[in-house]
Simulated assay, not measured.
Amino acid sequence: MEATRTALLTAGIEVGPVFHPGPDGPIEGLDPERRSYFSRATFRAAAPEDRHLCHLRPHDGQP
C-alpha cells in the first residue's frame, strides 16, 4: 500500500494519507489487521472525481 502510494506521488499524482475505518470515522494509517479493502487512500485521477486506492491481502490459498 505504502509503496504504491509513494509511486503515485512520485508520478506527480495527488494522493491523500492512508486511512482505515474506525468506530468514530476514518483513522489515519493502515488497518491494524491488514484486512483487504479496509486501508485506503484517496487520489485525484485524470477524471474530475476522486478515486480510492485499497489494500488487498496476498492470497494465501484459503477459500
Rank of each mutant, 00 (worst) to 15 (best):
L8M: 10
D50V: 07
R40M: 10
G29S: 02
F19Q: 11
V15G: 09
P63H: 02
P48N: 14
R5C: 05
I27A: 07
L53I: 00
S39W: 05
I27D: 00
P26S: 05
G22V: 06
A7H: 10
E28A: 11
R51H: 12
F38V: 12
Q62P: 02
G25L: 04
I13Q: 00
E14L: 11
C54K: 15
A11W: 06
F38N: 13
P23V: 10
M1G: 09
R51G: 09
F19S: 13
A46N: 12
A7W: 09
A3Q: 06
A3N: 09
E28C: 02
P32M: 08
R5M: 03
A3G: 02
R51D: 12
E14W: 07
E28R: 07
E2F: 04
G29W: 06
H52A: 12
G16T: 03
V15E: 09
R44I: 00
E14F: 07
P58R: 13
P21V: 03
A45M: 07
P21Q: 04
A11P: 02
P17S: 10
V18Y: 06
H20D: 03
H55F: 15
R44H: 11
T10C: 03
A7K: 12
G25C: 06
G29M: 03
R57F: 05
Q62I: 01
P23C: 03
L9K: 09
I13H: 00
G29A: 05
H55V: 06
L30Q: 07
C54D: 14
E33Q: 13
C54T: 15
R40P: 00
A41F: 08
G22W: 05
F38G: 02
E33N: 14
G22D: 11
E33F: 14
D60S: 07
P32A: 09
G16W: 01
H52D: 12
S39H: 02
T6H: 13
A11V: 05
R44W: 03
L53K: 01
